[in-house]
């Protein structure tokens, strides 16, 4: 077994151990719910990280895809009596198709047309959620979204959801690793380094970028469905532009072109967000400071660790070892 493979397995084991330790240390619903939020944000961020880090494209509409998953699940279960698992799958397929339709024309072009297109989609989706009448429940949303369940076992509390969401995150980490260590993943990394050379190796760069974009949208949709079946309620607010932006910051902070980076970024920002919310109970102004603080974080990361925390810290460690 190579040293690289050993390090890979060790890193994975440490992450699993940390995640498994939380419910042992505390059964507080507050901490467990933060744990679930980190997992859900992490699922979206890992997909966005692949898009940013390997296709070199920004999506400013990931919150909309997250919302499509959530609303898809809510609408299919409440209005059509669909099984929650089936609703989750159907919402993911539909979101993937929408991403494909957006991605094909925009990713053929050079430049950041995808960012603009996804920004537009985010706005359109927000309007549809708000104005969807009885289908989406309008601004007040849809209550009583059913829980996911296996047989008689429902994922109906924070601990159970925690135990469902995190294995999905780890599965995703394995998926990402499998992708990056394969022909398709090497093609993505090649595009990142030199598009002209990648194309001279018969890589269809537009097709590869669309593939990653669709994957990132499907991931976001799955996270959104998990959210809807967990909080049992959807309304338009969580799926608007500020959350799309926050997701981009998560990926930048953790580092896009690494498997763990976006997850660590998701954890860091979710915890900061929640801390400010708590602080807001004492000093009301703190709640509105999040956007300022995120701005400062982005500037600091770009100045000192442009490749994100994970790559930044490991390269500093490598330099230290090298003396």
């Amino acid at each position: 077994m190579s040293a690289e493979r050993k390090r890979e397995i060790l890193g994975f084991a440490v992450a699993v151990a940390i995640v498994a330790a939380l419910p042992v240390v505390t059964r507080s619903a507050y901490w467990l719910s933060i744990g679930v939020f980190i997992a859900l944000h992490g699922i979206v961020a890992i997909g966005l990280g692949l898009l940013l880090g390997y296709a070199g494209q920004v999506s400013l509409g990931q919150a909309a895809f997250y919302g499509m998953g959530a609303y898809g699940s809510a609408i299919l279960t409440l209005h059509l009596g669909c099984n929650p698992w089936l609703a989750m799958g159907a919402a993911a397929v539909a979101t993937g198709l929408i991403a494909y339709v957006i991605g094909v024309p925009t990713l053929k072009l050079h430049g950041h047309y995808l960012a603009m297109a996804t920004l537009g989609i985010g706005i359109i989706v927000r309007i549809l959620f708000n104005e969807g009448g009885h289908i989406t429940g309008g601004p007040s949303g849809l209550p009583a979204v059913p829980n996911l369940a296996i047989g008689g076992f429902a994922f109906d509390n924070d601990l159970r959801m925690y135990c469902l969401a995190w294995p999905i995150v780890f599965l995703q980490v394995v998926f990402s690793r499998n992708l990056l260590r394969s022909r398709l993943g090497r093609a993505l990394r090649a595009i990142h380094d030199s598009e002209i050379a990648a194309r001279s190796c018969a890589i269809n760069t537009a097709k590869a970028k669309v593939m990653v974009f669709v994957l990132s949208a499907v991931y976001a949709s799955v996270a959104g469905s998990l959210y809807a079946h967990w909080v049992n309620f959807v309304n338009p607010h969580p799926f608007s532009f500020p959350f799309s932006l926050e997701l981009v910051v998560m990926v930048m902070v953790g580092g896009a072109a690494s498997i763990w980076g976006p997850l660590i970024g998701a954890a860091a920002l979710t915890i900061i967000d929640q801390s400010l919310l708590q602080l807001g109970h004492v000093f009301p102004i703190a709640e509105d400071l999040d956007i300022v603080l995120f701005g400062i974080i982005v500037v600091l990361v770009l100045l000192f660790m442009p490749r994100g925390l994970v790559r930044g810290l490991s390269s500093q460690e490598a330099e230290r070892r090298a003396g």
Binding site: S182, R183, A187, R189, S194, A197, A198, I203, M211
Partner: peptide, 24 residues
Amino acid sequence: QIFHGMSVEDNVLVGCHRHGRCGL
């Protein structure tokens, strides 16, 4: 125009791209 972020072997593996078939 080599792929700077990749190993020598991975660079050459990208050259093999057109011989692969497996999907996502």
